[in-house]
Amino acid sequence: MMMCKQAQAIMQIPTGGMDLSAVSRRRPHKEKAVVVIGATGTGKSRLSIDIATRFPAEIINSDKIQVYEGLDIVTNKISEDECRGVPHHLLGIVDPESDFNAGNFVSTALLAMKSIVGRRKLPVIAGGSNSFIEALVDDENYQFRSRYDVRILWVDVAMHVLEQFVSDRVDRMVAAGMVEEVRNIYNPNADYSKGIRRAIGVPEFDPYFRAEYSSSTDHKTRAMLLETAINETKMNTCKLGRRQIEKIHRLIQVKGWEIHRLDATEVFQKKGREADEAWEELVARPASLIVDDFLFGNYRYRDFAVSSEIDDRGIREAEIRAAMATASY
């Protein structure tokens, strides 16, 4: 599985027929940024790319495991085709044996954001590591809040529906070569508390690989250990999803963050074209309307003398209000 190429300062991306310079000429003293959060498997990467293909934007990865180089299947890195030409930052750039903590993320992400806004693009920060997001938005030095206004979008899926999807996704990962990928980095003396080996789907296979190296372990036992490793990967991924949701609720209830919730449950209950249509209706379009209002808001309606009934790109104010109301906090 190929991951997206890292963004370079000179890279150009599709603007979708829109120019943020209109905002920059009239913007207040703060720049703007969008954050996409949610549990594992809910479609954060998909939504961030949808946004970046409708607005001139670049994406900053905030997944604490996807920052590492390697294990593209295990870490579910987005493929080059899925990137759709949108530049990505902090994706697969860190040595897999090193540690990359929240402090490293904050300093690196802030540099990436400065570079992105310098090119008149919108930074879209997307990933499931809420500890990284929290460290960035509420950093001790107040660097983020003093420089950026932020709109936070939460892609949510009912847990019982998400757990079935996660289980099926692990099966697809196994079929795509996940076991061989982990085998290639296996080290019986490895520390599973550091670097990329912390990824779910790596330590779970340790007993299986140890059995492979043992001549005294029969085929039936190895098959049982493989099945156990796969099941533990599924269970631990589901546990991760529940923890991620709990953290999002804490950010809302304890820290008072304003977060727009987009319910994608129905999307995951459909397949094929119906699922794509549900995604557009329930997630992509409402999110785009929210971002449009965030970026242009009163500037768009006042400065461009757009009709109160419909603007120059065919987005009705009523739709924006409806999207804002639908995306609960």
Rank of each mutant, 00 (worst) to 15 (best):
K270C: 14
I93H: 03
D138S: 09
V23K: 10
R313S: 11
I78M: 13
I245K: 15
D50Q: 00
D63F: 08
L240D: 05
S193V: 08
V34M: 04
I196H: 10
D139H: 03
D206L: 01
Y213Q: 15
Y186N: 01
S328E: 12
R172E: 04
V254E: 13
I65M: 07
A158K: 14
G241A: 14
S129I: 07
P28W: 00
V94L: 12
K32I: 13
N236E: 06
I152M: 07
M159Q: 08
G92W: 02
Y186F: 15
A325Y: 04
V106A: 11
I290M: 08
R84W: 01
R84S: 10
Y208H: 04
L240F: 03
C4K: 01
G17W: 04
V202E: 06
R222W: 12
Q143L: 11
I200Y: 04
N231T: 10
E181P: 01
D63V: 11
D293Q: 15
Q253F: 01
V67T: 05
E140I: 12
R198K: 11
R183S: 02
K77Y: 02
R222T: 05
F304S: 14
K270A: 12
N184L: 10
P203W: 06
A7F: 11
L111E: 14
H29N: 07
T237L: 15
N231S: 10
W279H: 06
L136C: 01
L289E: 10
Q253W: 03
E309D: 06
G38T: 02
L225C: 09
P28D: 05
S21W: 00
R183V: 02
G177A: 02
K30L: 15
G201D: 04
A327Y: 08
A278C: 08
L111R: 15
I65Q: 08
D99T: 09
D293V: 00
A9E: 15
D149L: 14
A190T: 02
N184G: 12
D156Y: 10
R321Q: 10
R321V: 15
E317A: 15
L71N: 01
G177K: 03
Q6F: 10
G103I: 15
Y186H: 09
L153N: 05
I37S: 04
Q12A: 15
G201Q: 00
C83H: 03
L91I: 03
F105P: 10
M159A: 06
L295T: 05
Q8T: 13
L162E: 03
R46G: 06
Y329K: 14
K234C: 07
V182R: 06
V67M: 00
Q8L: 12
N189P: 05
S328C: 11
M2V: 11
K121I: 02
K77W: 03
D168E: 12
R313V: 14
